[in-house]
Design a binder for these strands. Structure first.
Length: 654
RNA sequence: GCCGCCUUAGCUCAGUCGGUAGAGCGGCGCAUUCGUAAUGCGUAGGUCAGGUGUUCGAGUCACCUAGGCGGCACCA
């Protein structure tokens, strides 16, 4: 006999080999019907699997949260069956569960289009309606390969070969249609229900490798019920409304055009935002950093020395004279990074150990030839501004510098309202420079720093490791923040580098009078200012806190008699440092309120006859219909206080 | 870069079977002076992304190029 422990702590003795299905049946008739899988020691397994030893068990019904991934996984199988039924000759490959849904990759000479969806969905519903049971059987490697080979499923043959020796090969049969799968599945296709929808088609490389064939991927979403499906579709629409490309146009922040793929035309309002962000960062750097500026165009030898010319040449802009007659054939590069420039500044003149650490910061405009398919609004561009810095320090100072940077990064994020972060250590990649000993050392230092960050945050900051994701010259920390709608963005990085100082021959004079190589720490907080602004636009859905809003308030009139008063109000607010516009157009107040609300101006100050006579303003805040009548002086005081950036407020309070 | 889709007025989008381009918003003009999310009337605005081809005739069909969108790959 074996002991099964139930979620309520109850223990039951049963015969070994009892299946989850039988177990459910022994509890109640209704549970037998509702059960779709078994949770055994924290792992989902098929209901038909025998339980052979003591375990903690829980019967999973379709309504349990754990069943959702099964619904999606089963839906992927049904999608594959539907496609093969409708389009014979299509080869199936893989079909995993992903966040919010599933996909299946197919190989077919003619790719699918969304126009095929109605037919496929209809067929899926038909298969689900048949409600055939999922049944599993273990097969031998040879039998599995033979089976797929005979059906012309060459991708599946490759998949069988990829299964590690000693691992079982399982076939799942769903009413005659069979797929290779590690499972688990629910009891029958009918359990999938009807709350699913095919979403999009996309190309995807076989096994994620660009050297392989392109497959057609069909994405779908699936939920336990229609209400959840509908909620998901609504959330997608909401996310679309805060798309920074859309808000950028609606709020007149920036634009892109054909002649400049991947480079931003910043309009006045967008540039105001940009400048507000840079001004904030400058204040945060004032105490510890020296701001510098290195050239845009430098001879390619510098990039050869750094290694960029070797590793990233395809992604660099080459710059040469455009003249046809010129003899000067010298090749320059538009800088893709700031580090070589900063090293030149460090190397200029002798540095003493007493000078260290030297922290050079730059809002450096860099250009990278990103693949055309990678471009995406402000999030991925070919010309952008990094809030970059390089700290030149001694070995002993390195860990302390990393911690100091960590504090700065986290406090910057907090000032923008981001409170959830993950810090990951990215370790040595295959493509790299420097000796293994150097890498061992650098990774060792960062691992210890990461432990300390985690420990000192009291577990508030999550940490992790990204193996092989480091840069070619050193390991790094990747700072990821979570936005208002739960999306994660990797922004900041801290990189420890023993390689570039060596390659460029940078040194300082140590206490013993000897030349010594400094360690270099690269760091960025926002990463790309353009991208960070894109993230901010989406995070706030364009509804910026007052200190960032490009137009902080609009003063508008109800009657033209109040025009003079409105001008005076605007002057006073501007004198207090606020970004204010007036709207004296001969339009109804409804019209003007609507227009400025749509433009997401945080504060509308209405001046009518009454306000003019009383020296007041009627204040209306974005997102609220409430009105508040306040004295002009009061408005100036309240708004300038609210528009004070968080760091300045902190300084004042201190 | 790869796969698929898209590109019509400043913006959002119609445009039938291949027969000579349309709406709303916005702009401009006039009237309206009005109390918190769209006042009325009038008016201008187009190389249908660019090119080549098929055709008596192309916004519409085919091919090429560019840009965009969704994924994939990439992201120093």
């Amino acid at each position: 006999m074996i002991n099964l422990t139930f979620p309520d702590g109850a223990v039951r003795q049963v015969q070994p080999g009892l299946s989850g299905a039988k177990l459910a049946a022994s509890i109640s008739k209704s549970l037998e019907k509702k059960a779709v899988a078994l949770m055994k020691d924290g792992v989902l397994v098929d209901l038909a699997d025998p339980i052979t030893q003591d375990a903690k068990v829980r019967i999973i019904t379709r309504d349990d949260a754990e069943a959702l991934e099964l619904i999606r996984h089963d839906a992927a199988h049904v999608l594959a069956e539907a496609v093969q039924e409708l389009y014979p000759g299509t080869q199936v490959t893989i079909g995993p569960v992903i966040e919010n849904g599933f996909y299946y990759d197919f190989f077919r000479n003619e790719p699918f289009t969304p126009e095929d969806f109605p037919a496929i969905e209809k067929k899926m519903r038909e298969i689900i309606g048949r409600d055939k049971p999922f049944s599993k059987r273990i097969v031998s490697r040879e039998a599995a390969k033979e089976f797929f080979k005979s059906r012309g499923e060459l991708f599946k043959v490759e998949l069988v070969d990829a299964i590690p020796e000693g691992q079982e090969i399982k076939f799942y049969d769903q009413g005659g249609w069979i797929d290779l799968c590690r499972g688990p599945h629910m009891t029958s296709t009918g359990k999938i229900g009807s709350a699913f929808k095919l979403m999009k088609v996309a190309g995807a490389y076989w096994r994620g490798d660009a050297k392989n064939q392109m497959l057609t991927r069909i994405y779908g979403t699936a939920w336990a019920n229609d209400k959840d499906l509908q909620a998901y579709l609504t959330a997608l629409e909401e996310a679309e409304k805060r798309d920074h490309r859309r808000l950028g146009r609606e709020m007149d922040l920036f634009h892109f055009q054909e002649e400049g793929p991947g480079v931003v035309f910043w309009h006045a309002k967008g540039w105001t935002l940009f400048q507000a962000l840079i001004a904030y960062m400058r204040r945060r750097l004032r105490a510890d950093y020296q701001e510098v500026n290195a050239p845009q165009v430098l001879d390619k030898v510098l990039w050869e020395t750094s290694g960029h010319w070797g590793w990233y040449r395809e992604n660099m802009f080459k710059v040469q004279t455009a003249g046809d007659e010129t003899e000067d054939q010298r090749v320059f590069a538009l800088k893709p990074m700031n580090c070589p420039g900063h090293i030149q500044i460090f190397k200029h003149g002798l540095k003493s150990y007493r000078d260290l650490p030297i922290r050079l910061a730059e809002f450096g405009a860099v250009h990278r030839y990103e693949p055309s398919g990678a471009l995406h609004g402000l999030m991925r561009v070919r010309g952008f501004t990094q809030d970059d810095a390089h700290v030149f320090c001694t070995e002993e100072q390195m860990a302390e510098e990393c911690l100091k940077i960590n504090e700065l990064i986290l406090s910057v994020y907090a000032d923008f309202g981001f409170t959830e972060f993950v810090v990951k250590l990215a370790t040595r990649p295959e493509k790299r420079v420097g000796t293994d000993a150097m890498w061992d050392h650098a990774e060792d230092v960062l691992t210890r720093v990461l432990d300390r960050i985690s420990r000192e945050s009291g577990g508030r900051i999550k940490t992790g490791v990204n193996p092989g994701e480091g840069t070619f010259y050193g390991p790094k920390f990747e700072y990821t923040l979570r936005d208002a709608i739960g999306r994660e963005w990797q922004c900041g990085t801290t990189q420890v580098d023993f390689n570039l100082p060596d390659r460029f021959g940078a040194y300082y004079i140590d206490a013993d009078g000897q030349k010594k190589m400094p360690v270099m720490v690269h760091r960025a907080i926002c990463g790309s200012m353009e991208r960070f602004l894109g993230i901010l636009i989406e995070n706030f859905a364009g509804h910026f806190p007052l200190w960032l809003a490009p137009v902080q308030a609009v003063v508008t009139t109800i009657v033209s008699d109040a025009d003079g008063y409105a001008e005076k109000v605007a002057r006073e607010l501007r004198r207090a440092g606020l970004r204010v516009e007036t709207d004296l157009r001969n339009e109804k107040i409804n019209y003007k309120v609507r227009e400025h609300s749509v433009a997401k101006v945080p504060v509308i100050l209405v001046a009518g006859k009454r306000e003019m006579e009383e020296g007041t303003l009627n204040v209306r805040r974005l997102g609220s219909q409430a009105q508040q009548s306040l004295k002009l002086e009061e408005v100036v005081r309240l708004l300038s206080e609210e528009a004070t950036p968080p760091d300045v407020q902190r300084e004042k309070a201190a």
